[in-house]
C-alpha cells in the first residue's frame, strides 16, 4: 500500500521534472488509461496482500485494461457516444472494491498482530 503511494509520488515528481508532454488532444484517452492503470495497481496491492500475486496477470491487466480503456474512449469519440463512461464507471467502481478489500485485510492483520 505505502510503497505504491510512494511510487506514485516519486513518479509524479519525475513526471513534473521531465520535459516530455503529449498532444492535449489525447488527454481524454490518457486520463481513462490512467484510471485503468490505477485500478490494476490497486488490484495488484490486493493480490499481494492476499498472497496470490501473479506478474502475468498484473502486467496483462495493467497494459490490457489501459489500452482497452483508451481504445473505448477513442471509438466513442468516433461514434459520437461517450463510451469512456463505461471505463470510468467500471474502473472507478473496481478501485473502490479493491480498496475496500485492502482495508479489510489490513485491519484484520492489525487486529491479529495485537
Amino acid at each position: 500500500m505505502f510503497f505504491a503511494l510512494i511510487g506514485i509520488l516519486i513518479g509524479a515528481v519525475i513526471g513534473f521534472l521531465l520535459p516530455y508532454t503529449y498532444n492535449s488532444a489525447y488527454s481524454l484517452y490518457v486520463s481513462v488509461a490512467i484510471l485503468a492503470c490505477l485500478d490494476s495497481v490497486f488490484g495488484g496491492i490486493r493480490a499481494n496482500l492476499e498472497d496470490n500475486f501473479s506478474i502475468e496477470i498484473f502486467l496483462s491487466g495493467f497494459f490490457g485494461n489501459s489500452i482497452l480503456a483508451a481504445f473505448l474512449a477513442y471509438i466513442g469519440d468516433q461514434l459520437g457516444v461517450p463510451l469512456y463512461y463505461a471505463a470510468i464507471i467500471t474502473f472507478g467502481g473496481r478501485i473502490f472494491d479493491n480498496f475496500a478489500a485492502i482495508r479489510r485485510i489490513w485491519l484484520r492483520k492489525r487486529k491479529s498482530n495485537k
Binding site: 509520488l9 513518479g11 509524479a12 513526471g15 486520463s31 490512467i34
Partner: peptide, 8 residues
C-alpha cells in the same frame, strides 16, 4: 502511473 498523472 504517477508519471502519467503528472504529465496529464
Amino acid at each position: 502511473v504517477g508519471m502519467l498523472i503528472a504529465s496529464q
